[in-house]
Simulated assay, not measured.
Amino acid sequence: MKRSIVLTAVAVAFISTSAAAQSVGEKTGVNSVLGVAPSTADFVKEVAISDMLEIQAGKIAEQKGSAEEKRFAAQMIADHTKTSSELKGLVTSGEGVQIPSGLDSSSQSKLDKLRETKPDNFASQYDPMQVSAHKDAVSLFERYAKSGDNPKLKDWAGKTLPTLRHHLEMAQALDNDRK
């Protein structure tokens, strides 16, 4: 029993140190589970991709969604366009951090699935996707605001958190209304 506890502790320590060194932890969700702050490069990448996905998914929702989803989507487009612009203003190329110009394969897959969804089934795809995306965003921003290594981005993450928490509440209400 003691041996398994020690092995588990060693495994967790190994994962957390290798995750920080290799950025694998953010991609796999290990950092979130362990409460480890993402690297600045991972934070910027995740925020930029999340914003792009929210904006593009919102545009689809404006076409296929219910009146409530269309209102929510308009808010997501406006707010995530604003955070994208703010992020670009905070990140300078001299810091060795690059803002991605397109979606990663996972996000593109989610977007493709939304595009293929018929309007009658749209809520069953879009609503839970929004809850999940905003839970992830809140976790990402909380961890970076607490322990990020870039003071400007750390401050911005903290200031952006209330809006993201509100988005999560809105997404949960949208998803609950669907059920």
Rank of each mutant, 00 (worst) to 15 (best):
H80V: 08
A67K: 12
E46K: 15
G65D: 15
K110F: 02
L90V: 04
L53N: 01
E68M: 13
K113V: 03
D79N: 09
P100W: 14
A41H: 10
E68W: 11
R115L: 04
E68R: 11
S101M: 05
A57T: 03
D51P: 05
I99D: 00
K82A: 09
Q98F: 06
A67D: 15
M76G: 13
E62P: 08
K82M: 12
M52G: 01
D51E: 04
D42W: 14
S84L: 00
Q63C: 10
D112E: 06
A78H: 13
S84R: 01
A41R: 10
V97M: 06
S66I: 13
E95C: 04
V91K: 04
M76F: 05
S101A: 04
E46C: 08
V47E: 07
R115Y: 03
L103S: 01
V44R: 06
V44K: 05
S106Q: 09
P100T: 07
E86A: 12
G89H: 00
K59Y: 09
M52L: 06
A61K: 09
A57Q: 06
A74H: 14
G102K: 12
I55T: 06
T81D: 08
T92A: 03
S84D: 00
K113Q: 09
D79K: 05
L103P: 00
A78F: 13
E116C: 08
L87I: 01
S105H: 12
S66K: 15
F43Y: 15
A61N: 10
K59V: 10
L87F: 01
E86Q: 12
A61Y: 10
K110D: 04
T40A: 11
A73V: 13
G89E: 00
A74C: 14
V44Q: 05
A57D: 05
I99L: 02
S109I: 03
I77M: 13
S66F: 15
S101D: 07
I60T: 10
F72C: 15
R71Q: 14
L114V: 04
